Measured scan of single mutants.
Amino acid sequence: TEEFVRLWREAVRHNQTLHWNGTDFIPGDEWAEEFARREEEKL
C-alpha cells in the first residue's frame, strides 16, 4: 500500500525496523527489500 511504502522509506532512511501487520520489515533484509520493491511497483 501507499502507506506501507511511505513508512518503509522512512524506516530505511533512519535504518529502523518497520513493524507492519505483525511483521518486522528490516532495512537490508533481502525478503523485506523484495516485498517493498513489489509494493512500490504497484503504485
Rank of each mutant, 00 (worst) to 15 (best):
T1C: 15
E2Y: 10
E3F: 05
F4M: 01
F4H: 00
F4C: 13
F4T: 00
F4P: 00
V5E: 07
V5W: 05
V5Y: 04
R6V: 08
R6A: 08
L7M: 10
L7G: 05
L7F: 04
W8E: 07
W8K: 01
W8F: 03
E10S: 01
A11P: 00
A11G: 00
A11Q: 01
V12K: 14
V12R: 08
R13S: 12
R13I: 14
R13C: 15
H14A: 14
H14I: 13
H14L: 15
H14T: 15
N15H: 09
N15I: 04
Q16E: 12
Q16K: 14
T17C: 15
T17L: 09
T17P: 12
T17H: 04
L18A: 03
L18E: 01
H19M: 04
H19W: 07
N21D: 10
N21P: 01
G22I: 02
G22Q: 05
G22P: 00
T23I: 15
D24V: 12
D24G: 01
F25S: 00
I26D: 07
I26A: 11
I26R: 14
I26W: 06
I26S: 11
I26T: 15
P27I: 03
P27L: 03
G28A: 02
D29F: 04
D29W: 03
D29C: 12
E30K: 14
E30H: 11
W31F: 09
W31K: 09
W31Q: 08
A32Q: 01
A32D: 02
A32W: 04
A32S: 15
A32N: 02
A32K: 02
E33D: 09
E33R: 04
E33I: 09
E34G: 08
E34C: 14
F35E: 03
F35G: 01
A36W: 08
A36G: 07
A36P: 01
R37W: 06
R38F: 09
R38V: 11
E39P: 01
E40Y: 12
E40S: 10
E40W: 13
E41Y: 10
E41V: 10
E41C: 14
K42N: 07
K42A: 08
L43N: 04
L43K: 04
L43P: 03
